[in-house]
Design a protein around this nucleic acid. Sequence first.
DNA 1: CATACAAGTTGTATAATACAAATTGCAGTA
DNA 2: TACTGCAATTTGTATTATACAACTTGTATG
Lengths: 142, 142
Amino acid sequence: MKDILEKIEYEIALLVRLTTAISPKLGELDRSGYILLSKLEESEPVAINAIADELRLNVSTASRQIAALEAKQFIRRSPDQRNGRTSLIEITPRGREVFRNVRKARIGAYSEILGSWPEAELSRLEETLEKLNHSLADWEKK
Amino acid sequence: MKDILEKIEYEIALLVRLTTAISPKLGELDRSGYILLSKLEESEPVAINAIADELRLNVSTASRQIAALEAKQFIRRSPDQRNGRTSLIEITPRGREVFRNVRKARIGAYSEILGSWPEAELSRLEETLEKLNHSLADWEKK
DNA sequence: CATACAAGTTGTATAATACAAATTGCAGTA
DNA sequence: TACTGCAATTTGTATTATACAACTTGTATG
């Protein structure tokens, strides 16, 4: 059991390294912007606060990343009526377009990487990763 | 099928983010040094070259990381008889000790994170991650 | 309304990384 | 054997991702 965890721990560290090695090829978006947009793409306008929380980012980091995306006009802010300190962040059509293009490219890469996997294995991978992320997210909230 | 890949792609991006958020807690070793030592811990003395290759690091990056580990005396170099340009990198006893302590802490974290998983699921996770890493490593060699 | 708390921004620092140029050694060929 | 090109590494420089601490401004409550 200890051995399994040891192996998992190692494989995760390695996975992070290997995926980092391939992800620079993101084109107009950098890695941090990409994950942010992928959250924003599916959500209602939200406060920076909430974004930082979901991605376990320090608020200052989230603030800068959002500012960078705003400068490129991939997101925009609108004032939050209920709270003068907050603005609500929302992806722009341009942001959505760029995001989708990058995603398409990334999916293309993964379809090569995983090309030889039978579909059942892919499903397993998907489920397992999702579950792992949930466990990670829960833990960090502690 | 496209949908599965899309999901996988997203989950991997998220996984990278979430694990990055927890990994600063590495103590005496930083993230990059940790993965390097984990390779060296199990290998014969190797050239920087080979390390960079295995981890898909730019050689210059590997060179710096090795230099940092050397400064802390976690690795040492010995000349390669067959090649004057190369030295062979090897983990030191001190390096091994520090590595194992950090690893123990990390395994501890993962045992909390994955505490609720039945053992069968853990095995699945391990296998799946290993396979994914192999596919990634193969692809990048292209 | 005064004080404490919340949300966000900005100053500063660090880690991880890549690319390009420079150095030094090796190996094959004219 | 001297020359030329390739291999292995290091160092200069730049960029991205990130955190922590200090500051500003708004909100809410005793």
